[in-house]
Write a protein that binds this DNA or RNA. Sequence first.
DNA 1: CTGGGGACGGGGCCC
DNA 2: CGGGCCCCGTCCCCA
Length: 640
Amino acid sequence: MDAMRHPLPRLQLTVPVPIKTGKGVFWSRLVRWMCHHCTEPSGHCVNTVIGWPGGCQLLWEGDEEQGGGIWRVAMSPGEDGLIGIPFPEHSNELLSHLNDQRRTGLLCDLTLTSRGARYPTHRSVMAAVSLYFRRLFGTEEGGGEGGGGFSVCQLDCVAPDALDALLEFAYTATLTIPSSGMRDVLRGAQLLGIQCVADACREILGEKAEAEGETAEEQRIQYAAPKRMLVGESYVQKVSRRKTDRKRVKKVELNHRSSFFNPSPASPISHSSPASDSLRSLPSTQPPSPEQEELFIKSEQQNGDPRSMREPGRGATPNGGHPHWLHDRPRIAQPPPVPPPNDKLLGNDGVEGFGEDRMLMGSTSVPTSVAERGAAASAVGGGRKRKSQTPQQCPVCQKIIHGAGKLPRHMRTHTGEKPFQCSACGVRFTRNDKLKIHMRKHTGERPYPCPHCTARFLHSYDLKNHLSLHSGARPFECPLCHKAFAREDHLQRHRKGHSCLEMRTRRPRRGPEVMEDGREDEGRREQPNPLEALSSQAHTSVFHPHMLLDGGSGPSGAHPLMFPGDVERGRSLALQALAQLGPHRLGGYPELFLRGLELRGSREAEVEDPGGTHSPAALRDRWADEVEEEIGDEEVEEEE
DNA sequence: CTGGGGACGGGGCCC
DNA sequence: CGGGCCCCGTCCCCA
């Protein structure tokens, strides 16, 4: 091209601008050209012509020696290329119109809610501004349900004011927040993966932006990786390839076991995240980089109860500043030593191997979810045998979904879509089978009659619960107050409410009282019981179980509730009692709980139903699993 | 606080 | 492999 002989110093170089041409998209820094086709007399050509690929020519006109001359852009004769003509105001106008639509609810196809407040918005906008929503919606074929499904996404984890500010930012490119709300906005931006806002907030707050265990250089390298790697390499491969990150990954994974969005304290996989977690977890790490896709693949954590996105009253538990959807990965007991051999992205055999065979690997590995426990149980011969199905990994929460065809069903828990609507009352459901059951309300069908009375039920499990009333069976007993319940969830609720302890304190004690020195009359009961008192104490905020491990720290060198002169025995019994409390009560002393389990194990083995999944032993095993998770978490932290 | 009903999400089995 | 159906565990709500 002849024009290219001319020097370029006279050209204004500004920000890169994408130029779409017939031959692809090019990037150019040439933004102010005198347009050959424009009648503007000066360099203030509105239709600034940029670039030359695809049919434009750069023409230098004038006398270079005399400092004159000007670059001109001309269409190449015979070229079918396109000239990119930017309209700088377009984006603002577009955004403005979208904002108007948002305010009037026009074309809104997504409603965000936060603690009762509702925010109509547009999926496309949210997906454009938020890494989270991009990932959430990006997995939907054709936008999900044809793109027309109205969705509600509950984000109670983001404060309403913060969510409002973030939405305002999304539609106006301006973040307007009071300084007092900065942290909420920062947290929300991190949860939703709005990097620039998070950066700005963090800068204002003066917080450091460092990723866990990563140096800035490492991040730079990772984020600057050629994009083709993203295409050519599967998620699984990436996960496995980054062996050096496993420790960090493990740590984050365990930290995020308590679902980021779902810290439900009673959940067997989320109990370890008390409310304090959300307080201490204010962002201390590097949020997503601008190269989000790269970060997707980089992120390797798992967890997340997808329900949390939709269900109210399950506030956020930001942990480490990284949303679970960004970091979580399947609860894999132990990463495989070598990368899976195939290139499948999701639902591949590699993942299956993770979920089943490899789940049993590693002495410290603990299957945590009910499903995983079930898988492990079946693998060792107990429970139902799992049919060999290809698990699929949720691209949002990284959870492994077992069962063919179950992933779309699971995905609706993220999108909030409820495509199955009751024709009678209009209530919508995420699943067809739930709608079918719902329809029984309208038809009056109650297909589960009680054989002992006239009661009929909509659900088989309702009948099951009901039958327990007839039988009087109360197989779920509180280990503290020995109150029995017919349903396991009632026992769990009972335990959470600590009501058993209040009953204990009110209940007049029969026989000898605890002696002044803390010793109880050992002849009164089969099992000496300083333990109950300890247990009760463990429920209080002043309980310090480390005293037990330290051999007691009371004035006399032993815990006042222990047997003087028999500290070791006291410790043993106390630990056993503590084990009864479950990991929830023991907070940061999981090792105590495990030790207690150990001590109790042999003593009660013959009493309990070893095979019963709902037996106290089974419950204790579950708690043990939970505690081992916590311990594993701490160990990882210590290693670092 | 407890009992009971219902909703919801996940897994297994089958077609 | 997708979907239907069923069962289960968990949670919420209400009386």
